[in-house]
């Protein structure tokens, strides 16, 4: 983001600045409140929460809710904790992100440097596919996965996320490659370089930033997905979000809020870590997905 704030022109007095800082700080508290609630309550015994101490720091610090959420809590019919579902999510996310990013890069390259008649329409069709309500594809996809023998499996989920992730990855690479000087590509063509040589030697080496943006976006989206996971997985292939929901909504026994909070943090941790480490790229991805360009 550039630094030419309009405030270089618009000046505010010191009283006004005090008010501004106070408001900004209050909103920091507002955004951090649920995170505080989750962390603090995942580290205290259930009795302290039941006694109305949700906002207080733990009287007695304990890691038991974390251990329970990870390896012994009742999820659906099995008391396995969230561990197997965390692994499912990783098994699902890694291939889906890798393949959709590679395809997106190739598509973006074709759509900008090897233009053909109708390429804008092709791109428009790919793009609209990102925004459809997925309720519109749930019924046929369930049948299609059944026909392909992938119903209720992790590969089935990988396939679904790949299909509906291509639009966004193509969008990122297309908009990025559009800024890339076409003269360089022309010159390489005249020198006799072929389609893939140009891609490997000229396009890829300068694609680092957009690849990071795309990977982070796809990772966050696919990790956080719930609808496809809930629709197309069985008990042994459920992703983390679905398992967390089962844990929280289970109506049997005492509600172990502290375990729920620990589980919620586990489900949030991977995407949160990515955001903290590479937030700049995450925001760029968000903006490119909405403001485009």
């Amino acid at each position: 983001m550039s630094t030419n704030a309009s405030s270089q022109i618009i000046r505010t007095g010191s009283g006004a600045r005090f008010v501004i800082y106070t408001i900004l700080a209050l909103f920091c508290l507002y955004y951090l409140l649920p995170l505080y609630v989750m962390v603090v309550n995942s580290l205290k015994p259930l009795s302290e929460i039941q006694a109305g101490g949700m906002m207080a720091l733990p009287g007695e610090w304990t890691l038991d809710p974390w251990k329970s959420a990870w390896s012994t809590a009742q999820i659906g019919v099995a008391a396995t904790g969230l561990k197997p579902y965390f692994l499912n999510s990783i098994l699902m996310v890694v291939p889906a992100v890798a393949i959709s990013t590679v395809l997106g890069a190739l598509n973006g390259y074709v759509l900008t440097k090897w233009r053909f008649r109708g390429d804008t329409i092709v791109f428009g069709l790919l793009l609209f596919g990102c925004f459809i309500p997925f309720q519109m594809v749930l019924i046929p996809m369930a049948r299609m996965l059944g026909l392909m023998g992938l119903a209720g499996t992790v590969p089935g989920l990988i396939f679904v996320h790949l299909v509906y992730g291509i639009g966004f990855s193509t969008l990122y690479f297309r908009n990025y490659y559009e800024q890339f000087p076409t003269e360089l590509v022309r010159a390489a063509m005249i020198d006799g370089a072929g389609f893939f040589t140009i891609f490997y030697r000229i396009m890829l080496p300068s694609s680092g930033p957009i690849a990071v943006v795309c990977i982070i976006w796809q990772f966050t989206n696919i990790w956080n997905d719930f609808l496809f996971g809930a629709s197309f997985s069985d008990f042994d292939s459920q992703p983390m979000t679905v398992a967390l929901n089962n844990l929280v909504q289970s109506s049997t026994g005492v509600k172990e809020y502290n375990v729920h909070f620990a589980g919620a943090i586990m489900a949030a941790l991977p995407t949160l870590l990515v955001y903290i480490v590479a937030g700049r790229y995450f925001v760029r991805g968000l903006m490119a997905g909405s403001v485009k360009g």
Binding site: C28, L33, P34, V248, F282
Partner: peptide, 28 residues
């Protein structure tokens, strides 16, 4: 400050829902 304002976007709606569900629950 921007980082704090934006981090909820990185969370799953299931996580957000869980946190608010219990925070808004009258009992606890």
């Amino acid at each position: 400050i921007r980082t704090i304002y934006l981090y909820p976007m990185a969370l799953s709606f299931i996580v957000t829902g869980t946190a608010w569900k219990w925070f808004l629950d009258p009992g606890i």
